[in-house]
């Protein structure tokens, strides 16, 4: 079995140590960093995301795979920089004002990073002004807004209003998600997309960078 296939297999199982060793082995074998990233790591996370969407695995398996992904990327990072490999795109992720829940937001971040998107994590309880500022500073093209509560989901609309008011609404795609959020709610507040889960969020975000 090729080293890239082994990386793929071990990452799906969440075996962080094995993946780190295999990534080092791949670097030593002279495999381009882009190929290790795309064909070994990202392709494995795509499989993890797909299985998650199909309810074949659940959050624990995703978290463990994402942890292995992060460990592997840390090993690969110097090679990626040396070889000029750029991320697919840049996204802002946060939980909206009034809400301290970060699990959904963290999962979305992991899955986005798993498909090669650079994430700017603004944390929890973030208001529209902070998001507008981050959009201007980072040049991110996608904003992912999480809310877990019926009482805080309306803050997702406040963010969209703030982006409009600041004149940057058209420069970003706004994605919303969270337990009480639905497609019809997303439509009603003028979001560009609703993601039912973290794997779908990654899939949708990728379409915005094509």
């Amino acid at each position: 079995m090729s080293v890239l296939l082994q990386i793929n297999e071990m990452l799906q199982k969440g075996r962080a140590k094995n993946v780190e060793e295999l990534v080092n082995q791949a670097i030593n074998e002279g495999i381009p960093a882009q190929s290790i990233l795309n064909d070994g790591l990202i392709s494995a996370m795509m499989v993890v995301g797909q299985k998650f969407k199909e309810n074949k695995i659940y959050v624990p398996e995703v978290l463990i795979a994402a942890r292995a992904m992060n460990a592997a990327v840390a090993v690969l990072q110097p090679e990626l920089v040396k070889q000029g490999v750029k991320p697919v795109g840049k996204a802002i992720v946060c939980t909206v004002k009034g809400d301290l829940h970060d699990i959904g937001k963290n999962l979305v971040k992991m899955m986005l990073e798993g498909v090669g998107i650079e994430c700017v994590d603004l944390g929890v309880d973030v208001d529209g002004d902070a998001i507008v500022e981050a959009v201007k500073e980072t040049g991110a093209n996608v904003v992912c807004l999480s809310a877990l509560l019926t009482t805080t989901m309306t803050a997702q609309k406040d963010v969209i209003d703030a982006l409009k008011e600041a004149g940057v609404r058209n420069s970003v795609k706004v994605m919303v998600g969270g337990a009480p959020v639905t497609q019809s709610f997303a439509d009603s507040i003028g979001a560009d997309a609703y993601a039912v889960d973290a794997a779908s969020a990654a899939e949708i975000a990728l379409t915005f960078f094509k």
């Binding site: 009034g98 809400d99 301290l100 829940h101």
Partner: peptide, 26 residues
């Protein structure tokens, strides 16, 4: 002004909002 960081009975260090509005602690 906005947050309190405390240790709860389960030994977790958590951030909570001081405005009294319901949200699971961070």
């Amino acid at each position: 002004e906005k947050y309190q960081i405390h240790q709860n009975g389960d030994g977790l260090i958590a951030e909570v909002k001081k405005d009294g509005k319901s949200s699971i602690p961070h």
